[in-house]
Simulated scan of single mutants.
Amino acid sequence: MITEKELEIMDQLDALNSKVMETMEYRHYCKYRELLDTDPAASGLIHRFTKMKEEFEEVQRFGKYHPDFSTKRREINQFKKELDMNPVIMEYRKAEYQLQALLDEILYHVSIGVSQNVNVVSSNPFFSVGGESGCSTGGSCGCQTAI
């Protein structure tokens, strides 16, 4: 049974979702996601990288004892650099990062609206709240709480 309060919260979440979809970050992300899907050069690089990665995972099962391990690892690292330098992929990753930063900030503000002691999991240490460390490891990773 859904209560009236829960319906109100769901309506507010729908409104928040609509506002996110109106942001420049979201539109930029959608633009580059579409380009990533339709650009033949980027699609070819991604497809080739996926195949190389699958081949490397097969070799990696045997670790450094496989005769092709070093060669395959070097090849995949070199190709990854080529993949990362593709302008469409580079812009897509940048747009993805910016959208994630926006979503992290929204999550932070919603979370502290619920409770000051809530643990917000984020790759951005600025949004850490309610704990002794900036992540859920209890400080074992060496991060610190944002001030």
Rank of each mutant, 00 (worst) to 15 (best):
T3I: 01
T3K: 10
E4W: 03
L7H: 11
I9H: 02
M10Y: 06
D11R: 15
D11H: 12
Q12W: 05
A15G: 00
A15R: 11
A15Q: 10
L16R: 06
N17Y: 08
V20D: 06
M21C: 11
E22T: 11
M24H: 12
M24K: 13
E25V: 02
Y26R: 10
Y26C: 06
Y26W: 14
R27L: 11
R27S: 12
Y29A: 01
Y29S: 02
C30S: 09
K31M: 11
Y32D: 05
Y32A: 08
E34C: 03
D37S: 14
T38D: 08
D39Q: 06
D39P: 10
P40T: 12
P40I: 07
A41Q: 12
A42K: 09
S43A: 14
I46P: 00
H47Y: 03
H47G: 03
R48M: 10
K51G: 03
K51Q: 11
K51S: 02
E55N: 14
F56T: 06
F56H: 11
F62A: 12
F62K: 11
G63H: 07
G63D: 08
K64Y: 06
Y65F: 08
H66G: 02
H66V: 04
P67E: 07
F69E: 00
F69P: 02
S70P: 00
S70V: 04
S70R: 14
T71V: 13
R74K: 13
R74H: 03
I76Q: 12
N77F: 01
K80W: 02
K81T: 13
E82Y: 05
L83D: 03
D84N: 15
D84W: 04
N86C: 13
P87S: 14
P87W: 13
M90V: 04
M90Y: 07
E91D: 12
Y92L: 04
Y92C: 03
K94R: 15
K94S: 12
K94L: 13
A95K: 10
A95I: 11
A101K: 15
A101G: 07
L102F: 00
L102S: 05
E105F: 00
S111N: 10
I112C: 10
V114E: 07
V114N: 08
S115P: 09
Q116G: 07
V120P: 01
P125W: 07
F126E: 15
F126T: 15
S128E: 02
V129S: 14
G130P: 08
G131S: 14
G131L: 01
C135L: 07
S136W: 02
S136F: 02
G139E: 07
S140G: 00
S140K: 14
C141H: 09
C141S: 08
C141Y: 05
Q144C: 05
Q144K: 15
A146P: 06
A146T: 05
I147F: 03
I147T: 09
I147H: 04
